[in-house]
Amino acid sequence: MAEFSGDTSQGFEHLSGNHPRDVDELFALVPQLPRGDTETVEDDSVLVSPVLSIQVTLFPDHGFSIGFTNSHVVADGKSLFNFIRTWASINAEQLIGECNYEILDTLPFYDRNVIKDPKGIASIFFKAQHENSGASFSAAPSKDRVQATFVMNVAQIQGLKNLVMDKIPHVSTFMVACSYVWNCMAKTREALGHGTEVEQCLVYGMDVRARLDPPIPANYFGNAVLGCWNTLKTRQLVGEDGFCNAVEEMNRVLDEKINNNEGVLKGLETYFDDIGAAKGKEVIRVVGSHKFDYYTTDFGWGKSKKYEHLNRICLIRDLKGDLGIGICLSKNEIDSFTTTFIQGLIN
Rank of each mutant, 00 (worst) to 15 (best):
Val74Gln: 13
Ile115Leu: 10
Glu98Ile: 05
Ile84Glu: 02
Lys116Val: 10
Ile115Met: 10
Thr86His: 07
Ser138Leu: 02
Ser142Leu: 08
Val114Ile: 11
Leu104Glu: 06
Phe137Arg: 01
Ile121Val: 15
Ser142Phe: 02
Phe125Cys: 10
Asp105Thr: 14
Gly120Glu: 06
Ile90Asp: 06
Tyr101Val: 13
Ile115Asn: 04
Asn82Ser: 12
Gly97Leu: 10
Glu102Asp: 14
Cys99Arg: 12
Lys116Ile: 13
Thr149Met: 09
Thr149Arg: 05
Glu131Pro: 00
Ala122Arg: 14
Glu102Asn: 10
Phe83Gly: 02
Asp111His: 08
Lys127Gly: 00
Ser123Trp: 07
Glu93Asp: 15
Pro108Cys: 12
Ile121Gly: 03
Ile124Cys: 11
Arg112Phe: 07
Phe150Glu: 05
Gly97Thr: 08
Leu107Ser: 04
Asn113His: 12
Gly134Trp: 07
Asn153Ala: 04
Gln94Trp: 04
Ala148Ser: 15
Asn132Leu: 09
Lys143Met: 01
Ser71His: 07
Ser71Val: 06
Met152Gly: 01
Asp76Arg: 07
Met152Ser: 02
Ala128Gln: 15
Ser133Ile: 08
Ile103Ala: 11
Glu98Ala: 09
Val114Met: 10
Ile124Asp: 08
Asn132His: 12
Asp111Glu: 11
Ser79Lys: 07
Gln129Trp: 15
Glu98Gln: 13
Gln147Cys: 06
Ala139Asp: 02
Phe109Trp: 13
Met152Gln: 05
Asn100Ala: 11
Val73Asn: 11
Ile121Trp: 11
Ile121His: 13
Ser123Tyr: 07
Val73Asp: 13
Lys119Ser: 13
Lys119Trp: 11
Phe125Trp: 13
Ile84His: 02
Val114Asn: 05
Thr86Lys: 03
Tyr101Ile: 13
Glu98Leu: 13
Ile115His: 05
Thr106Glu: 14
Tyr101Gly: 02
Phe150Cys: 03
Glu102Phe: 04
Ile90Pro: 00
Tyr110Ser: 05
Val146Met: 04
Asn82Gly: 01
His130Trp: 11
Phe137Ile: 00
Asp117Leu: 07
Ile124Ser: 07
Ala92Asp: 12
Ser89Met: 13
Asp76Lys: 07
Asn153Gln: 04
Ala139Thr: 01
Val73Ala: 14
Phe137Gly: 08
Gly120Asp: 04
Thr149Gly: 01
Lys78Tyr: 12
Pro118Ala: 09
Thr86Phe: 04
Glu131Lys: 12
Phe137His: 12
Phe126Gly: 00
Thr86Met: 05
Ser123Met: 13
Asn113Glu: 14
Asp105Lys: 14
Glu102Arg: 07
Ser133Gln: 13
Arg145Ile: 00
Gly77Ala: 15
Val114Ala: 10
